[in-house]
Simulated scan of single mutants.
Amino acid sequence: MTALVRAAALTNFSEVAQELGHDPAAALRKAGLRAALIRQPDQLIEAERVARLLEDAAHSTGCESFGLRVAARRQLSNFGIVSLLLMHQPTLRQVLLTLIEHLHLLNEQLAIQVEDVGKLVILREELLVAIEARQSIELAIGVLYRMGEALLGERWQPVGVSFTHEAPASLGFHRGFFKCRIEFDGSFNGLVCRAADLDVANPAADPVLADYARKMIEALPDDRQRAIDQEVRKAIYLMLPAGRATCKSVAQGLGMSVRTLQRELDGKSLNFKQLINEVRHELAPRYVANNRHSLGEVAAMLGYGSHSAFTRWFGIQFGCSPEAWRGGQSGVRKRKPLARP
């Protein structure tokens, strides 16, 4: 099943493209999309087309902050009917949990996880696409950051933001957008916040309106059932870099027993080991391509306890060692500084 995203994901794309001297209509046609389509926010379009469109726009304009510039213009209302439900949750933590519950209505390729680590909370965010999607990742994390601003105002003070990709040639726009520490070449994509900030009461919350919005959402036709294999893949994407992508942990995260999860996967002629391998196969080229990660770090990010085990797996999957692959790809994958900051 082709993963879909609401056309609202491209809200403000045209405005940002025009400001940077790019023809949005031509860019959309090249991506196989119609300009009229993105003016219908609830229209569903292929998630991978959106990712390619944003990458192409960043390259064509020479602007490495393209996705973040689109996020800077976003409003909570861009989530459609889900926005009404989000605005009236009692705390930001509950907003995030509610957003996760309804992600399948917004973007089937987006995965978010709320992880408590002592007095801090890590908001992990990943996109399940097989292509390089730096702009989409920055757009998604930027929108999440804007959501916190919209709900908490000046009380929204994240500790930091992390990206697994390398830093842009110019950090000016990123520093102006994220008013916190920014880490590139990190071990995960997402935000780090204080747990106390997520549990501050939302003074605008109205339980009556929240209940009304939930009933409206429940009444929506939903003929695209949430596939268990896609939900498991999302969980693996989020848990793998932290070394927690076990069958037990994933089952718990999905609110089911290990036996139930295995039975669900058996019904699709799948198994957990197979899905782990598929996710590793998608992530490994991205991680290995980044020279700032040692191959030992890459092995750990893919859930391997030793470099040798990772090397054996990589050789089977890609026909060479990770060292050879990195060396052979360095010439074509090395980032060239773009013309515009």
Results as ranks from 00 to 15, higher is better:
residue 45 I to P: 00
residue 80 G to T: 12
residue 47 A to H: 01
residue 241 P to I: 05
residue 17 A to K: 01
residue 210 A to V: 07
residue 81 I to F: 15
residue 258 V to F: 02
residue 48 E to V: 14
residue 33 L to K: 02
residue 108 E to H: 00
residue 224 R to S: 13
residue 291 N to R: 15
residue 218 E to Y: 11
residue 331 G to C: 07
residue 54 L to I: 04
residue 143 V to I: 13
residue 21 G to T: 00
residue 129 V to Q: 10
residue 159 V to Q: 10
residue 46 E to V: 06
residue 101 E to K: 13
residue 23 D to A: 12
residue 300 A to I: 09
residue 280 R to N: 07
residue 265 L to E: 01
residue 308 S to D: 15
residue 280 R to F: 09
residue 241 P to Y: 06
residue 13 F to I: 01
residue 58 A to K: 01
residue 125 E to I: 15
residue 56 D to W: 12
residue 323 E to H: 13
residue 201 A to I: 12
residue 309 A to Y: 12
residue 76 L to D: 00
residue 20 L to A: 14
residue 284 A to M: 06
residue 302 L to H: 05
residue 324 A to F: 08
residue 15 E to S: 13
residue 308 S to H: 15
residue 268 K to G: 09
residue 239 M to P: 04
residue 132 E to T: 12
residue 25 A to M: 15
residue 23 D to P: 08
residue 136 S to L: 06
residue 103 L to G: 03
residue 208 V to M: 10
residue 10 L to I: 01
residue 319 G to K: 06
residue 138 E to P: 04
residue 249 S to E: 11
residue 38 I to W: 10
residue 143 V to T: 09
residue 110 L to W: 14
residue 42 D to W: 14
residue 156 W to P: 03
residue 87 M to A: 13
residue 271 N to Q: 09
residue 150 A to Q: 13
residue 262 Q to M: 06
residue 134 R to Y: 12
residue 10 L to D: 01
residue 59 H to D: 15
residue 225 Q to P: 10
residue 23 D to L: 13
residue 282 E to F: 13
residue 56 D to T: 03
residue 298 V to K: 00
residue 209 L to N: 08
residue 27 A to E: 03
residue 169 A to V: 06
residue 302 L to V: 14
residue 88 H to V: 03
residue 199 D to F: 08
residue 135 Q to L: 10
residue 119 K to I: 15
residue 75 Q to E: 15
residue 318 F to I: 00
residue 245 A to W: 02
residue 203 P to S: 04
residue 187 S to W: 13
residue 132 E to C: 15
residue 184 F to H: 11
residue 217 I to N: 00
residue 15 E to G: 11
residue 231 E to T: 05
residue 329 Q to C: 08
residue 122 I to Q: 15
residue 260 T to L: 09
residue 256 M to R: 02
residue 83 S to Q: 03
residue 138 E to I: 06
residue 286 R to Y: 13
residue 90 P to W: 03
residue 158 P to K: 06
residue 135 Q to T: 02
residue 80 G to F: 02
residue 11 T to E: 12
residue 272 F to V: 05
residue 54 L to E: 04
residue 170 S to L: 00
residue 28 L to R: 01
residue 107 N to A: 12
residue 75 Q to F: 09
residue 19 E to M: 15
residue 45 I to D: 00
